[in-house]
Amino acid sequence: MNNHEYKKYAQQKVSPSPMGKNLFFAFLIGGLICTLGQALLDLFSFWGFEKKICFTLTSITLVFLSALATGIGKYDDLAKYAGAGTLVPITGFANAVVSPAIEFKDEGFVMGVGANMFKIAGPVIAYGVSASIVGGIITYVISIL
Protein backbone atom coordinates (compact mmCIF):
# COMPACT_ATOMS: atom_id res chain seq x y z
CA MET A 1 0.00 0.00 0.00
CA ASN A 2 1.60 3.28 -1.01
CA ASN A 3 1.09 6.52 0.93
CA HIS A 4 -1.76 7.70 -1.23
CA GLU A 5 -3.63 4.41 -0.95
CA TYR A 6 -3.03 4.32 2.79
CA LYS A 7 -4.46 7.81 3.23
CA LYS A 8 -7.63 6.77 1.42
CA TYR A 9 -7.82 3.53 3.38
CA ALA A 10 -7.36 5.35 6.71
CA GLN A 11 -10.01 7.87 5.75
CA GLN A 12 -12.54 5.05 5.36
CA LYS A 13 -11.88 3.98 8.94
CA VAL A 14 -12.86 7.37 10.31
CA SER A 15 -16.52 7.79 11.01
CA PRO A 16 -17.65 10.98 9.24
CA SER A 17 -18.56 14.12 11.16
CA PRO A 18 -22.26 14.11 12.05
CA MET A 19 -23.07 16.73 9.40
CA GLY A 20 -26.80 17.00 10.01
CA LYS A 21 -26.43 17.51 13.73
CA ASN A 22 -23.48 19.91 13.33
CA LEU A 23 -25.31 22.01 10.75
CA PHE A 24 -28.43 22.17 12.88
CA PHE A 25 -26.59 23.39 15.97
CA ALA A 26 -24.37 25.79 14.01
CA PHE A 27 -27.46 27.32 12.42
CA LEU A 28 -29.45 27.41 15.64
CA ILE A 29 -26.82 28.80 18.00
CA GLY A 30 -25.25 31.10 15.39
CA GLY A 31 -28.72 32.37 14.55
CA LEU A 32 -29.56 32.92 18.21
CA ILE A 33 -26.37 34.92 18.81
CA CYS A 34 -27.31 37.16 15.86
CA THR A 35 -30.86 37.49 17.19
CA LEU A 36 -29.43 38.57 20.53
CA GLY A 37 -27.34 41.08 18.57
CA GLN A 38 -30.51 42.35 16.92
CA ALA A 39 -32.17 42.78 20.30
CA LEU A 40 -29.17 44.78 21.54
CA LEU A 41 -29.22 46.86 18.36
CA ASP A 42 -32.89 47.68 18.92
CA LEU A 43 -32.28 48.43 22.58
CA PHE A 44 -29.48 50.90 21.83
CA SER A 45 -31.48 52.59 19.12
CA PHE A 46 -34.45 52.77 21.53
CA TRP A 47 -32.14 54.59 23.92
CA GLY A 48 -31.58 57.11 21.16
CA PHE A 49 -28.07 56.30 19.96
CA GLU A 50 -27.15 57.07 16.37
CA LYS A 51 -27.29 54.05 14.01
CA LYS A 52 -23.52 53.65 13.60
CA ILE A 53 -22.95 53.88 17.34
CA CYS A 54 -25.62 51.21 17.90
CA PHE A 55 -23.64 48.73 15.78
CA THR A 56 -20.44 49.51 17.68
CA LEU A 57 -22.16 49.21 21.07
CA THR A 58 -23.69 45.90 20.01
CA SER A 59 -20.25 44.57 19.07
CA ILE A 60 -18.76 45.73 22.36
CA THR A 61 -21.59 44.15 24.36
CA LEU A 62 -21.31 40.83 22.52
CA VAL A 63 -17.54 40.86 22.99
CA PHE A 64 -18.08 41.48 26.70
CA LEU A 65 -20.59 38.62 27.00
CA SER A 66 -18.23 36.29 25.16
CA ALA A 67 -15.29 37.33 27.36
CA LEU A 68 -17.43 36.65 30.41
CA ALA A 69 -18.53 33.23 29.14
CA THR A 70 -14.93 32.40 28.25
CA GLY A 71 -13.67 33.62 31.62
CA ILE A 72 -16.02 31.40 33.57
CA GLY A 73 -15.19 28.47 31.30
CA LYS A 74 -18.54 28.10 29.53
CA TYR A 75 -17.93 29.33 25.99
CA ASP A 76 -16.09 26.18 24.93
CA ASP A 77 -18.90 24.01 26.30
CA LEU A 78 -21.32 25.78 23.98
CA ALA A 79 -18.82 25.66 21.10
CA LYS A 80 -18.57 21.88 21.39
CA TYR A 81 -22.10 21.72 20.00
CA ALA A 82 -22.27 24.94 18.04
CA GLY A 83 -19.04 24.61 16.01
CA ALA A 84 -19.11 27.40 13.45
CA GLY A 85 -22.19 28.79 15.23
CA THR A 86 -19.92 30.16 17.95
CA LEU A 87 -16.89 30.63 15.67
CA VAL A 88 -18.27 32.93 12.98
CA PRO A 89 -20.06 35.60 15.09
CA ILE A 90 -17.94 38.30 16.70
CA THR A 91 -18.24 36.37 19.98
CA GLY A 92 -15.95 33.76 18.38
CA PHE A 93 -13.39 36.46 17.68
CA ALA A 94 -13.60 37.58 21.30
CA ASN A 95 -13.21 34.01 22.51
CA ALA A 96 -10.12 33.64 20.32
CA VAL A 97 -8.58 36.70 22.02
CA VAL A 98 -9.68 35.98 25.58
CA SER A 99 -8.92 32.24 25.76
CA PRO A 100 -5.16 32.53 25.08
CA ALA A 101 -5.03 35.56 27.37
CA ILE A 102 -6.32 33.40 30.21
CA GLU A 103 -4.34 30.33 29.22
CA PHE A 104 -0.94 31.98 29.04
CA LYS A 105 -1.27 33.81 32.34
CA ASP A 106 1.15 31.22 33.72
CA GLU A 107 3.85 32.73 31.50
CA GLY A 108 3.31 36.19 32.99
CA PHE A 109 1.27 39.23 32.02
CA VAL A 110 3.66 40.66 29.44
CA MET A 111 5.10 37.74 27.50
CA GLY A 112 2.24 35.40 28.44
CA VAL A 113 -1.04 37.29 28.30
CA GLY A 114 0.12 40.25 26.23
CA ALA A 115 2.11 38.38 23.63
CA ASN A 116 -0.31 35.50 23.16
CA MET A 117 -3.57 37.42 23.01
CA PHE A 118 -3.56 37.54 19.22
CA LYS A 119 -2.05 34.12 18.71
CA ILE A 120 -5.29 32.83 17.19
CA ALA A 121 -7.22 35.98 16.26
CA GLY A 122 -4.18 37.83 14.89
CA PRO A 123 -4.58 36.56 11.32
CA VAL A 124 -8.15 37.91 11.21
CA ILE A 125 -6.93 41.43 11.99
CA ALA A 126 -3.80 41.14 9.83
CA TYR A 127 -5.69 40.05 6.71
CA GLY A 128 -8.84 42.05 7.38
CA VAL A 129 -6.93 45.32 7.80
CA SER A 130 -4.58 44.58 4.90
CA ALA A 131 -7.50 43.76 2.63
CA SER A 132 -9.20 47.01 3.63
CA ILE A 133 -6.00 48.97 2.85
CA VAL A 134 -5.71 47.33 -0.57
CA GLY A 135 -9.37 48.20 -1.17
CA GLY A 136 -8.66 51.71 0.05
CA ILE A 137 -5.77 52.17 -2.38
CA ILE A 138 -7.96 51.03 -5.27
CA THR A 139 -10.80 53.32 -4.16
CA TYR A 140 -8.40 56.24 -3.81
CA VAL A 141 -6.80 55.70 -7.22
CA ILE A 142 -10.21 55.48 -8.89
CA SER A 143 -11.35 58.65 -7.11
CA ILE A 144 -8.41 60.76 -8.36
CA LEU A 145 -8.56 59.47 -11.92
Binding site: G31, G37, V88, I90
Partner: peptide, 8 residues
Protein backbone atom coordinates in the same frame (compact mmCIF):
# COMPACT_ATOMS: atom_id res chain seq x y z
CA UNK B 1 -29.57 43.81 10.73
CA UNK B 2 -27.44 42.01 13.30
CA UNK B 3 -27.84 38.80 11.29
CA UNK B 4 -25.32 40.31 8.88
CA UNK B 5 -23.35 42.63 11.17
CA UNK B 6 -22.54 40.15 13.95
CA UNK B 7 -20.82 37.42 11.84
CA UNK B 8 -17.18 38.17 10.98
Amino acid sequence: GAGASVPL
